[in-house]
Amino acid sequence: MTERIYLTPTPVRIWHWLNAFGFVALILSGIQIRFPEYANIFGSYKAAIRLHNTAGIVVSASFLLWLGYYLLVSRKMRQLYLPTIDDLCNGVVRQAKFYFLSYFFGHQSPHHASPDDKFNPMQKSAYLVIMMVLVPLVILSGLLLMNVGPMRTLAVLVGGIKLVASVHFLLACSLCAFLFTHVYLATLGSSPLAYFKPMLTGWEEVNHE
């Protein structure tokens, strides 16, 4: 029997795809900005910088949308993103065992997504670090780099502009590495596109055996 559940509300889907396209734009323009003599993707260096700045603002705005929605509208931030003690002690191990062992033997995931419990313990832990540490830091360091003149005192306070730029680069690499893993894991559903569909329509089809 197949059941349809409304898993991903519209504001979250808007945030997700703004974020996704924003990240791709940031990665491509970031490659050109850092390695201009090897990559000319957008025609000119200035175009790459403008796109990077614009995409950075879009991603920052979409982050605020995500934060505002989960904190103020749905009020499910803690429920969905904060791992419980059991998640950390047992759930993470159980989920890791599935991904790295039982999946290959054809077993089902121990976690079943529902609107109130969307993420498995590994997802919760990873998303918490990504959304509460890495993304805010990459946004803040990016804003500082966009406004070096007016915010110079702040740049000096945190160790100088070079340190800020280096941290921004390493954070971007970390988020890019997450993106590879994230997109791959999204193909581990009942079919390779099973998890992509709810991010477009909001609805997920769940098979009950």
Binding site: C173, S174, T181
Partner: peptide
């Protein structure tokens, strides 16, 4: 720093 970044990216390739 480029090498550090490359290693992080390589880590992200382990799963795929």
């Amino acid at each position: 720093l480029n090498l550090a970044g490359a290693m992080i990216l390589a880590g992200g390739m382990v799963m795929p």
